[in-house]
Design a protein around this nucleic acid. Structure first.
Lengths: 154, 154
DNA sequence: ATTGAAATATTGCACAA
DNA sequence: TTGTGCAATATTTCAAT
């Protein structure tokens, strides 16, 4: 992984559909070379995927919440994580340090759906209780931090 | 926005670099038709962008934390949000209901960097204090919830 | 990493359902 | 209006170097 790889990554983080030809022009390489580099970044697990980002309310998922998950004393957190993964509405899941075992981000259509999700969460073996924080608005999300892609050498 | 649009969106959420030709094969439309539909979804703000997802530690951002922001009594939350947006290491920013005004997700290279970021946060006008939850591991993140894309009619 | 070449994809446009 | 088919570019993807 050199500076060129990092520039390609930064470009793809901002513009996931950039063509290899475009990327090549940006970094001063042929499309083929970029193609091969990106392929290697993908198979080595540096780039894990490409996703379209959608305005949640326009796909009927207007209610976002951040939910802290408290485990029971005897819980196996691995099992809890798997149970959380089985719920479609759980978009992200973080294992955290502190009183809570996990913090998850949940996106649903309505507060009624949120209530249903909370019910499902509480019924998961190993979950003692939950603490819900409702998101009023998302100022920004998943913004690429490219601060480390600063190369001195060019 | 019809069922075909929803299927295209679902496909692009999973596979952001899918070609129009590929998408067309999936939904039974010509590449031209898909091209036009996607263009409209983009200009109407349904699809807001495409991004490569990168393994954070492989780009030197191995430390993730979720930080609750408490505002002062006199704070203008709009100003606070703008100040938060100016910090590169703040990847996501949610305005929330509850004791905290915002919850932000911060990604940095080391705990030293985290300490520096916390210092920057506390120096922002309008922020009274912060509450940091360290992420031990990310089980999954930004997973597309396609549960609402269930069409009965096909 | 490059070049060259064949296969594939993009994208504008005329026209048809 | 939305989709199709076509044609001109452009891109992808290989093999050879």
């Amino acid at each position: 992984m050199d500076a060129v790889d990092r520039r390609i990554i930064a470009a793809l983080r901002e513009h996931g559909r950039a063509t290899y030809a475009e990327l090549g022009r940006q970094v001063g390489l042929s499309a083929s070379a970029v193609h091969e580099r990106v392929g290697k970044l993908e198979t080595s697990g540096v780039i894990t995927g490409y996703h379209a980002v959608v305005n949640p309310s326009s796909v009927g998922l207007g209610v976002t919440s951040l939910i802290g998950i408290y485990s029971t004393d005897t819980a196996d957190d691995e099992d809890v994580a798997e149970a959380l993964a089985r719920l479609d509405e759980v978009e992200s899941c973080y294992r955290v340090a502190g009183d809570e075992s996990f913090i998850v981000k949940v996106r649903v259509a309505t507060v009624d759906d949120l209530e249903r999700t909370l019910g499902r969460l509480r019924r998961i073996e190993g979950i003692a209780r939950t603490r819900t924080t409702l998101v009023l608005s998302t100022r920004f999300e998943g913004r690429p931090n490219t601060s480390e892609v600063d190369d001195g050498d060019e």
